[in-house]
């Protein structure tokens, strides 16, 4: 099994997001960046499949040189190869643009593959678009928001999360699968892995080398405004006897909030 896993560098979920309002972008200075948590499940799944069936796991990120750190983390977890597709464009929140870059990579540089793994969503852009877009542009089956993946021969089947239930879908390989929490428990890097990752070369491919013309990767999304959510005001706080508290709470729900 040849597996490609697509990974993104995102701000840690603990981050407080500050905005440069006049430029409609977030202030990245001072933020701690990590491997997108959903991509961690994707990497773990790829490693487990390789351990069971052999093959190679290649992790790929589209981004600036800074994305090298998350590629190193994936190598330290056990990925065989890593590739950086160098794109110095700032975050555009444009899923199609990244999908087209990934597709061009798959067509021109990737060789054969059986499985393309993604996270279900990049924490930050929160698009949840790229896996389905890549699947469409490569004419492949897709299984998104997956909590279980089984491979048998040249077929895959997944459970994908929907409202209050799961859909079981099956498809021939190659296919696109995007990982949801619950798929597995990502492993920690080992010291040996970290040492090996340090030494490993990470090839860098430019957008020109992929043969992408400027038109195809011009963002179709313009960010007109970026703002913080309205601050919530702390409301009333009550203490006292449980019986009385319960009464006041129900009164609030009934008379003020009018939700019951």
């Amino acid at each position: 099994m040849n597996i490609f896993v697509f990974v993104k560098r995102v701000p840690d979920t603990e981050s407080k997001i500050k905005i440069a309002h006049n430029e409609a972008r977030i202030i990245e200075e001072g933020l701690n960046f990590v491997l997108n948590p959903y991509d961690e499940y994707a990497v773990e799944e790829a490693l487990q499949i390789r351990e069971a069936k052999g093959g190679t796991v290649t992790v790929v990120s589209v981004g600036s040189d800074a994305a090298t750190t998350i590629l190193k983390k994936c190598l330290a977890m056990g990925a065989d190869e890593a590739v950086l597709i160098k794109d110095d464009n700032p975050e555009s929140y444009d899923g199609l643009r990244t999908a087209r870059i990934i597709v061009q990579f798959l067509k021109n540089k990737a060789g054969d593959y059986d499985l393309l793994l993604f996270g279900k969503q990049s924490v930050g852009a929160d698009n949840a678009q790229i896996p389905a877009m890549v699947a469409e542009l490569m004419d492949l089956p897709q299984g998104n928001v997956v909590t279980s993946l089984e491979i048998e021969g040249s077929k895959g089947s997944v459970l994908r999360e929907i409202e209050g239930a799961s859909e079981k879908i099956s498809f021939p390989l190659p296919a696109v699968v995007s990982a949801q929490k619950g798929l597995n428990e990502p492993r920690y890097e080992t010291l040996k892995g970290i040492m090996a990752a340090k030494k490993k070369e990470i090839p860098v491919i430019s957008l020109e080398e992929l043969g992408l013309d400027k038109e195809a990767i011009k963002p179709q999304i313009s960010v007109l405004k970026m703002e913080s959510p309205p601050e919530r005001q702390a409301g009333r706080k009550i203490e006292g006897e449980p019986q009385d508290l319960a009464k006041q709470l129900v009164q609030f729900l009934h008379e003020e909030a009018k939700v019951i």
Binding site: P11, G124, A125, Q220, V223, M226, E227, S228, P229
Partner: peptide
């Protein structure tokens, strides 16, 4: 739309 899980909001135009 919300980004960063609602820690910020963007207004976007689609061309």
């Amino acid at each position: 739309r919300p980004i960063y899980a609602g820690k910020a909001f963007i207004t976007v135009g689609l061309s």
